[in-house]
Design a protein around this nucleic acid. Sequence first.
DNA 1: CTTTCAACTGTAATCGTTTACAACTATCAT
DNA 2: ATGATAGTTGTAAACGATTACAGTTGAAAG
Lengths: 334, 334
Amino acid sequence: MATIKDVARLAGVSVATVSRVLNAYDNVRPETVALVRKAIAQLDYQPNFLGRTLRRLETMKILVVVPTISNQFYSRVLKGIQLAAQAAGYHTMLAITNSDAEIEQEHIGMARRKLVDGVIFLHTTMKAAALTEFAASCPAVSACELVEEAALPTVSIDDFRAALDGVRFLLENGHRRIAFVSAGGLYNSSRCRRMGYERALREAGIEPDESLIFDEGFTFNAGKRAAGRLLMLDRLPDAVFATSDSTAIGVISALAQRGIRVCDDISVMGFDNNQIAEYYLPPLTTISQPQFDIGHKAFELLHDKINDLSCEDRHILLPHRLEYRSSVKIRQNP
Amino acid sequence: MATIKDVARLAGVSVATVSRVLNAYDNVRPETVALVRKAIAQLDYQPNFLGRTLRRLETMKILVVVPTISNQFYSRVLKGIQLAAQAAGYHTMLAITNSDAEIEQEHIGMARRKLVDGVIFLHTTMKAAALTEFAASCPAVSACELVEEAALPTVSIDDFRAALDGVRFLLENGHRRIAFVSAGGLYNSSRCRRMGYERALREAGIEPDESLIFDEGFTFNAGKRAAGRLLMLDRLPDAVFATSDSTAIGVISALAQRGIRVCDDISVMGFDNNQIAEYYLPPLTTISQPQFDIGHKAFELLHDKINDLSCEDRHILLPHRLEYRSSVKIRQNP
DNA sequence: CTTTCAACTGTAATCGTTTACAACTATCAT
DNA sequence: ATGATAGTTGTAAACGATTACAGTTGAAAG
């Protein structure tokens, strides 16, 4: 494999000159540039970026910590990150943690060892104190699933408002007994959404009923479990507000097996607006998150931190949107 | 940031000794080891791996070239790769190309520039010659979507057999007019599957009918388009064999809008066995690919190549499996 | 003809490690 | 006492680039 020395030798110049040509400095005589380019072509030389990286102490790589990519929600955020990173000349590395703290730590060691210039957390097992400490010594931002009280830039939607809007929509369309399927207090987003859910009910003069709140998780199977519990109630609620689309279709699928038809017999609302929401039968009403924009913004915040670790932490809330589809029964004449 | 020199100074030894301790060589006196460890702890020293990487000329990173991760098929293969890589101490980098040749080239430049030790292609825009040339100078393997005639290790299912088995199953259950929805001749897998489809029909004494073959693509919308064309036929076929689950549910969804009920009115079979196949209403009969195993094996093949670029190219075919679910009508009394 | 300066190019240090080799010590057999 | 040997440790040269600095050249200005 040819190195810069080989090129220099062949072109009859010094390695410094070759380097200048490679980096497009303008203070090299055109004839010399031509000479060097010819040598580069002749040797099919590709600069070894490890050398540059070591000298400049920057890797032009970022790490994205993600619990899973099987959920389309994350893969879309990731795409937003990746495209923004690419445009800025960065490469993206992926740490799929399965929410395992040990795996996560193993991966973010890459940052401490200077293998990446910064980290975006789409979810983390770290507590506020650990995350704050990490972010103090390494450019880092938190997106989607935030950690309360942690000091680092963040970007997400306003989960409280989003849930508020979703449940208000159900209430406005005549649903009174509304169940809530979520992932429990471990997730900040779940906590916020639950608060939004309860606020909306109270606004309508309804006291939240613990027996209609199911902490099962974000997955399809969580939805199935929730449906199982729903079916054990004396009577079905009017509507189910699930905090992910996967959970929502888990509910629908399990109910369908018992012959209960969504929309006609019960309304179901999801969260995220994954492809599945659009494609399912029936198509799912859901709260749409701007996944791509979240990713894009997350990289932007990280880039700022990479350029200046002590720059102020920004906290971005991006707008959500209610996507109406036929899984929710609406009042025809309000 | 502390470096190995700082540690050496504090511990009163040379950098070589510190390095030996870091790499757990056994020829360092225990007392010295203790001294060094103490200094490391005191300085909260983390080795900068860029130095090691440059010296050893190995990055312990691999690149996975993937057209998209929005398709769950790829994210599962990726997971298999990632876990195998992790177990061997490798990190995974992702190149999402959207099947754009330029983006792909930009990314695989990383390999040429020694930023990664090897590349796994889950799909590539390169032709056989270019891919062969690339693989000759850089460890590379091709998985899932292969390139005919390219000389590099491969792992996939036997697409011909898989389609043969799928269509045979439909035929055995009384379906005669079977439509085929696929991505056309550009994809090797599509070509093989079409051959399997045609062979199965001919075995049953049916001459393939061009008007029942739709080259639309692998996506949900491709399925919708195909359904639109199906509906323009004089009469619906008995069954549709789609070469991806997304396409299959696109077909189902579009037919449902016209009130055509899958299973009762027409059977639909998918391919891949994504989650969506299990979760959809109705659940989808499909050809299951061992996505995780494909990923795992792909890394294994790559690892062999990294250790010895001139080792023999292996070509692995992993078993597929027909997953029966209710989207296909079956003969009750054969 | 000298001086000055800009334009170009080369030398060598540097980034943070690893590692070949040398060197030192202590022990032990001769 | 000598030499050999094993066990430790240090010195310095890599790895492949970038870059501060110094040096060379030639043309323009005086």
